[in-house]
Design a protein around this nucleic acid. Sequence first.
DNA 1: TTTATTTATGCAAACGCTTACAGAAAAAGA
DNA 2: TCTTTTTCTGTAAGCGTTTGCATAAATAAA
Lengths: 361, 361
Amino acid sequence: MSKKLDQATQTLKTPRSRRSNGNGLSSTTIMDVAREAGVSYATVSRVVNNKEYVKSDTRERVLKAITSLGYVVNQQARSLAGGRSYAVGLLVRDLGSSYMGEIVKGIDDALSAAQYNLMLYTTHRRKIKERIYVNNLIQGMTDGLLLVLPENLEAYLETLDQTHFPYVLIDHQGLDERTPVVITTNWQGGYDATRYLIELGHRRIGFITGMLDMLSSQDRLSGYQAALRDNGLPVDPQLVYEGTFYQPGGYSGAQSLLGLPEPPTAIFASNDVMAFGVMEAVRDAGLRIPSDISVIGFDNIAQASQVAPPLTTVAQPLEQLGREAVRMLLVRMNNPEQPIERSILPTTLIIRQSCDVPRNV
Amino acid sequence: MSKKLDQATQTLKTPRSRRSNGNGLSSTTIMDVAREAGVSYATVSRVVNNKEYVKSDTRERVLKAITSLGYVVNQQARSLAGGRSYAVGLLVRDLGSSYMGEIVKGIDDALSAAQYNLMLYTTHRRKIKERIYVNNLIQGMTDGLLLVLPENLEAYLETLDQTHFPYVLIDHQGLDERTPVVITTNWQGGYDATRYLIELGHRRIGFITGMLDMLSSQDRLSGYQAALRDNGLPVDPQLVYEGTFYQPGGYSGAQSLLGLPEPPTAIFASNDVMAFGVMEAVRDAGLRIPSDISVIGFDNIAQASQVAPPLTTVAQPLEQLGREAVRMLLVRMNNPEQPIERSILPTTLIIRQSCDVPRNV
DNA sequence: TTTATTTATGCAAACGCTTACAGAAAAAGA
DNA sequence: TCTTTTTCTGTAAGCGTTTGCATAAATAAA
């Protein structure tokens, strides 16, 4: 079994200038590995990509060479040749909220488990230009796109669909049923929280909405209303305050509700951040939580358990939302023909200490 | 002036399969533009890269072709050929704090202005493996690296230095003076805040530190101590509580300080998040801010102005920190020989309503 | 004019990889 | 043993750029 020691008779054109990746260190290429292992570079490629038809003997030899040389594939080259970049784009409006933080964590974990890189695009609430997509995404910079709470979807969803570019929306219903999304049971969450308050004995429950242009906000509101109806309570529009998803919205919402001739005994804010605003306003009004006013939130961000009193809230599985989105995206990237999935994850009511039976009961 | 209409006689080998970037739409290449403009692809490349020696006439023709065809360069190919990926890596421990959010915003803005892409790497407080770097960064995935508050620096700084890979640390002093960093005047910030409290009349000022393994935490503490000394006040170790930079740390710190036989009349927390914890503890103790206890923070995150009472704090120019880091990184990437810069941005005392003269004065 | 410069442009090679194709070796059938 | 099939490996082409070199065109100098 004489090993072919004649080595690679491979075209040994003198390179323009032994590439040094722009910085120091000239990186080892597939060629170096091939030479070291005494095989052709094609074989090395097969091993690296786990293709069949490589003798296990050879495979091992190559693997050994790879480790000994510390070879890692050059994504750019791989992408050029094979058409895959092993990166996905993540489009968010901004970072810095724990809502985003948790979703991104899920995405990040799932993606790195799948050996993918993450390209971040932040819109910072300015209208993003189509260009970003054409420029970077479609041009092969990334193999897929994740959009968290996208804003002016109409502007680019069409482009994405036309080019059959794989994408998944996170916490957004999409334009129609054929949009791949990962969402949560917002309606049910709204319903559950409201019912819980009703069961505690509350009869007048204030509700602070999120931004109503988002379907998720509307769903939470509908859930709230449905729970009232189902329990024979009136749906008083006075008790609904249109909020913003930001803390000041919760603060002024609570002020407004508490100023009502017949104020509510409980306030349900459409997210935790607004619930914090509510808590502040309640305190500023000289009232106590939960004895005077019960407060309930939505999201269950990390801070919710840290405030005083710990906030009762509807948990969205944020991190899992991210993971699931990645899972779906990977499927779409690998099987474009697969029918479109819509994933709906369950919310859970997390009971802490910000709600109690109403005083007047 | 008969235009050469014979067009490109360029090697028209039949392509393996008109590339369709993995998805739909076959993208237009430099060749298409060349054909359209009636020049060679090399000329198109020159135009795209703004090189000299292109007749303005030609340049315009090419530019027109580019827009009409909607051509955008393929980064992968460019990177393969030219050794630049036009992407930088961003390594953060986690997202989801507005501290990070603001820094990232600055980075993001500056980077996209420079036409660079952003690859995100999140450590999530687990030890990152060297591999990430070798794998992705050094291998040409990115041209440079930004590290925000890096954790176990020693583990990889050496690798970065050895390979001359361009990087900049953000809000971290680095290992020595030759590390390129962007930091703020932490000492001065600590000093200013403390002096302000002293000027208000406070004599016993509690201090809650950040994680003390970070130099910035130590600097804030030193600033605090220096201000006390400069004003002839005792430096009482009892008044210093070791915190964590997280809200519960502030809460328990305040509880501990308030429980002292001779409690402070003001508490200086090493960041805003902890200051929120302090505010909560103060309230829970039945005291009022600022009449009973003054509270001061550090960072000036967005929420600081939204809590009640609005928090007096030391502002760090977080967004600018990000911008400046990008500026420095770009310099390093383009002029590796340039001497190393260390950029120190000023903090500012932001006076709001959480501090007042002490009751006993 | 003729020659030397400078400015423009094109050609071809190279970047590091994937993959179709073909040929060699090994295994299975006849 | 001789085919046929299957498994393995190598060759070559191509992915879309950048860039050194050569040549052509336009200017400047002589």
